[in-house]
Design a protein around this nucleic acid. Sequence first.
RNA 1: GCGGAUGUGGCGGAAUUGGCAGACGCGCCGGCCUUAGGAGCCGGUGUCACCGACGUGCAGGUUCAAGUCCUGUCAUCCGCACCA
Length: 803
Amino acid sequence: MDSYNFKSIEKKWQDKWEDAGIFHAVNGSEKPKFYTLIEFPYPSGAGLHVGHPRSYTALDIIARKRRMEGYNVLYPIGWDAFGLPTENYAIKNNVHPRIVTADNIANFTRQLKMLGFSFDWSREVNTTDPKYYKWTQWIFLQLFKKGLAYKQEMPINWCTGCKVGLSNEEVVNGVCERCGSEVVQRRKSQWMLKITEYAQRLIDDLDEVNYLEKIKTQQKNWIGRSEGAEVKFTLSTGDEMVVYTTRADTLFGATYTVMSPEHPLIEKMKDSITNYGEVEAYQKAAAKKSEFERTELAKDKTGVKLEGIYAVNPANGEHLPVFISDYVLVTYGTGAIMAVPAHDSRDWDFAKKFDLPIIEVVAGGEDVQKEAYTDVYKGKMVNSGFLTGMTVKEAIPAMIDWLEKEGLGKRKVNFKLRDWVFSRQRYWGEPIPLVHCDKCGWVAIPESELPLTLPEVEHFEPGENGESPLAKATDWIKTTCPECGGEAQRETDTMPQWAGSSWYFLRYMDPHNDEALASKEALDYWSPVDWYNGGMEHTTLHLLYSRFWHKFLFDIGVVPTKEPYMKRTSHGMILGENNEKMSKSRGNVVNPDEVVNEFGADAFRTYEMFIGAFDQSTPWSQQGLKGCYKFLERVWNLQSIVNDEAGYSADMEKAMHKTIKKVGEDFERMKFNTAIAAMMALVNDFTKKGSVTKGEYMTFITLLNPVAPHMTEELWQTYGGEGFLSIQPWPKYDEEKTVDDEVEIVVQINGKIRDKLTVPADIDKTGLEELALANDKIKAAAEGKTIVKVIAIPGRLVNVVVK
RNA sequence: GCGGAUGUGGCGGAAUUGGCAGACGCGCCGGCCUUAGGAGCCGGUGUCACCGACGUGCAGGUUCAAGUCCUGUCAUCCGCACCA
């Protein structure tokens, strides 16, 4: 027996798998399909992080197990390769992002291949490949044609140093992440996608999928549905101001109203506002505030009263002052609110600052002059006309009914979800396939002209005023209008990184199709994705965006299912040894290349799965990794005690069946750590016994194969197994043989353990009671006391209660 | 502030429905082997006043029985952040 040499073994089997193509998914197979998906990586210059393989190994185990169970498995891989870090690197070093991307992909490919994942490499996709983004652009065109894409002025984060628009992630504490300069708000016309039109369906259809509950909750919270009412307030100018509220019950407690500084009525009422100068100054100051400042100053309310204006409370006719304040957002509801300081803490803060009256309309709290009372479950209405005496729950619909009857308001559902800002003033993204014609406006380019490829430019920096780098490609921009044939200009903005990743799982089904994003047959066969695993950080954006696109594609008849993913799970982060997030600056980064070089891919994979609970974050431990290597070595060394017997030996039979059951079930529940623990325990049993039958060994390495595929293939071959172990049937167990004949029963007195008995497994309650009462220790302990009760749980324990 | 998690040995973590707390691994201790051990093998390892008691962040409660259920509370992490 040679000693365990992972270096030669791993390369050898990776080559054999590739040559034989055993991990290729087959379109149109007779077998049942199983489609499992990991989030395709962004090929960064830093190379693979040890966090990537946590998800990849987990679903590799599932994919491998499914293949062994007879499924036609699709486990694909690709590259989410557009994006900022590549572009920034390209700018800094003046190389084309395409070259940077190709280099990074080559490195990632090498790293992923060295880990022995059973990906179908023949279906590799790359979002930056024109053959791929042709279809990203095609989907955008369909959205545009259905009126779901529109252009709007939006504030963007503008770095005053780099002179570029920044994503929210690039703004740290109000300054640019890279250069440290101040970041301000600038308005720019941007393409938007109407995801809000799908808000309700994005909530409702969560009932039809099997996502972790916390993922569903997070999606629902992000979409942020709220039920309330729009209420009309007539202003002294005769204008109508509509406010949105979820607490219509508190209308009698409104003591002032507030509009957001951007509200259009302000301009309209210009001549009636006696302090308009002051108002304008406030509007300007609010516009300049960055997101950061607005949040920072959240507690300290500011605002200006519109002098010369009042609003009439529709419930009681009272005249209320009107303010503008940036604590009211123009983007939510109607951009105006009625303020009820007694029962809303933000209004309370504002009222205190501006010395406005606070009127209690829900009784049950403390003194509302000292603190707002916001509880909606307790308390009764007071000072509220016809609502007085009702509970809050009764008063809300009662008030809305009244408002609707009087024509003063109506029920209204609002969502926090905003439309998706889809433009980027960047080079390394998909060009937006539209042209602007002075006569016809924005016009889609003909689908036959797709893909609209990125033009070559000299430099990749955005322009001085934040225009896209594509604006420099003057020849490319100039074109003719597809509609009228006149002069027209191409859109120079590109799509965000989220675009390519919103549909990539569809492309894997039929990656080389030139006629469609995938054939109907492929879509019908493979849809939906059966199991998708990824990080919690993608729960709100990526997951929501791709569900939105998928629903749209369903609506226009392109895909056969309403939802893209049937099951979604997520993994925890792997932290550095010091329990902090791994980062270059902290110096706690673990390099997968070094790990594999020293301990091999199988040990790396085993440790990634054994490191801790899969859904929890957990620190890396070099010692723990070594422990897993030692485990594999012990598995290898078992060869010295393997005999020729084909079946299971009598004393090991139960242990074998139990382990098969546990490992299979634990894999399905993503309890990889306990599955591996069970296999370690079995190896300990083998070692203790000093012999293993060939039958036991072959079954064992089959169980271990999804975790440590290289070494187990080698052992399979050594012991004359036929073909590849990776596609042998998954071991079966006999339920009857997982149950022990004899079990250990705990005997307690008043819940304290006094003795342990080994009894036949099928002994009943009465039998157990008798045994326990006959027990010497129990007799001694019960001496002179009364036995009140005896509780016997077969298979577990007997508890004797004495007094 | 809101939402989501998590608190168990020296460490990572086990413990389907309430039913032997600490599986498995690391580390540590002892032994064997060795010229040597950051190798291998064997044994031990929650704490303590060690024939017994105490132990799952803390304080209560329900129960024959609580890591698990209930009430309150503290701490840490993640996400969102004036959404009326």
